[in-house]
Nucleic acid binder design. Structure first.
Lengths: 336, 336
DNA sequence: TCAATTAAGTTTATCGATAACCCCAATCTA
DNA sequence: TAGATTGGGGTTATCGATAAACTTAATTGA
């Protein structure tokens, strides 16, 4: 590889002079400057960012850790982060933890040794706490995305899950539903707890008693509780609507319902959090739509501000609203 | 940050001794070894991979450039690449070119300055040639994924698009269709040309004349030619089936058909390349399903072999078959 | 028993780039 | 016209880790 020294030799100057030309610092005559630039082009010189990072003590790289690279919510978020990072002169190192703590730990180790300047962290669950501790211990700035981790105060960009959930459930109630099930992600994830809280809010506001038999805890990657769903449907007073904790849960749920011969929305309404992206033929779900792209973009902004110290010491907490989008997966309950 | 020198001082040994402990090289007594290891843990030492890369002249990082991070085909491919890379001890730097040459060039520049050990490259189009030249000039090994670039011999992992397309179209023909339209990606992309070729093969094999008015060139990200579709439908002898070049084209196409009041598959059959991933409620499309995960995994394997010189000089060309999966988007043509 | 090994470390140079400081001649200034 | 300034550049040390060569003391072998 061509180095700064090769250029220097060719141009009959010192390496320092070349460095100054590259960085536009110091005093260099216009003549030498253009001569050196020409030689750099001819020799296809590209600065070695490793060497530069070593002395400057910054890599201009940020890391984005997401729990599910196949979920459109997170890929859209990733695009937002990527665009923002590029615009601010940073590269983005993606990581996909697959909702697994083990994989997440491997990524954290990698992040440390790569000496990225900061991390955008969408935690696998509350148990990610130690990983955040590790980052803090090494003084690597980070911003939590989408999911909060109790006991870890820091900059965050989250959605208003509680409010979004309330709106979804009140929408169902306004359609006439009284028996509403909740198929949720793991309660070890903050958004799942918030969505549960919003669900409870809506029921309380409308004087509907919470019935634990209608609550089902699965996980955000796949809907996994077919048997429980079945027994729920066999209840003397079965639900007429389901609120699914996220998009993939809703998809899994509907697949199961189809298998069981339950028609949506005629026999069962289904609503959920998060859109399904471009890969869906017929926007079908009534959803609380979150601005995924903004999550990423604002997260990067916050992170870079923090890295540059261009912000106040207090932790910034950005809460993005979600929008209720009514489509055809929700309808009034079947007549008795 | 804690360095190897801090550890050395604490342990009363030279930095080199610590380095040897880290890398398990040289002769170090078991006593000193464990003492140093303990100190490293206590001080939370993490090796600086920049410094290491600088001297070793390798980064243990690979780069994966994909054209559309929102497409399930590519995210699945990315997961395959990620898993394989991790398994082989490499980190993966993702890049998303968004099918744009400009963005692609930015990534190539970044790749060069980051000194990654190799690149998995899914080219935006044939016009990506110069970018490959740049990589070659700097002697960075690369493997082309999914899309070939004419005039650039190298290791590749591609799908058998031609054969897959033929199977899809012959499936339609076997259902009784004779007027079959092709809604394709840009012909500047090799897969689109191969799929066109497969389409032609199928027609020829079945003595059906190719009709240019049934050919529509769009792009793989979104279906964009509503007007042309409309006029195609108003032909005296309109198509009864459409072969879409990829999953997103099929989705866009069906949305348009729904708008126009054309029912699928009753009035129009639709088949396409590539699955739609987990985000789809009801697997609906008849597709040529490609092993996306394998694309990524085998690409990494090929790349690492090439980097390590553990392969013969000839270019390896892996062609993965696709599988015809018949579902409900295809049916016999409507009766006259 | 004495040279030859070996075990266990240490010293020095290096990767590529940059910060901080130094140097010299030309120009300016009072 | 002597001293100060400045334009244009060079020297040296440094970032953190490692390879290669070098020390020493202990052990081995014939």
């Amino acid at each position: 590889m061509v180095t700064i020294y090769d250029i220097a030799k060719q141009a009959n100057v010192s390496a320092m002079t070349v460095s100054k030309v590259i960085n536009n610092t110091g005093k260099i005559s216009e003549k030498t400057r253009s001569r050196i630039k020409k030689i750099m082009e001819e020799m296809n010189y590209v600065p070695n960012s490793m060497a530069r990072s070593l002395v400057l003590q910054e890599t201009k790289m940020l890391s984005l850790l997401i729990p599910d690279i196949t979920n459109p919510f997170f890929t859209t978020l990733a695009r937002g982060a990527e665009d923002a990072a590029m615009r601010l002169g940073y590269k983005l190192l993606f990581g996909n933890s697959d909702e697994s703590l083990t994989k997440e730990k491997e990524y954290v180790d990698m992040i440390l040794s790569t000496r990225v300047d900061g991390v955008l962290f969408s935690a696998a669950s509350d148990l990610s706490g130690p990983h955040l501790q590790t980052l803090r211990l090494h003084r690597i700035p980070f911003v939590l995305l989408d999911r909060a981790v109790p006991g870890h105060e820091c900059d965050t960009v989250t959605g208003d899950s509680r409010e979004g959930a309330r709106k979804l459930v009140e929408h169902l109630i306004s359609l006439g539903h009284r028996r509403i099930a909740l198929v949720n992600g793991s309660l070890a994830v903050s958004t799942a707890r918030d969505r549960l809280a919003g669900y409870n809010d809506a029921l309380k506001l409308n004087d509907i008693a919470v019935d634990d038999t209608l609550l089902l805890e699965s996980n955000y990657k796949h809907f996994e509780d077919g048997p429980l769903l079945r027994s729920m449907l066999e209840l003397p007073d079965p639900p007429t609507a389901v609120f699914a904790g996220n998009n993939f849960l809703a998809v899994g749920l509907i697949r199961k319902l189809l298998e069981l011969g339950v028609r949506v929305p005629e026999q069962m309404s289904v609503v959920c959090f998060d859109d399904l992206g471009a890969s869906v033929i017929d926007p079908f779900f009534t959803v609380a739509s979150q601005p995924a792209y903004q999550f990423g973009a604002m997260g990067i902004q916050l992170l870079v501000d923090r890295i540059k110290g261009a912000t106040t010491p207090e932790w910034k907490k950005i809460v993005l609203p979600s929008e209720l989008v009514v489509r055809s997966s929700s309808a009034p309950p079947p007549a008795e």
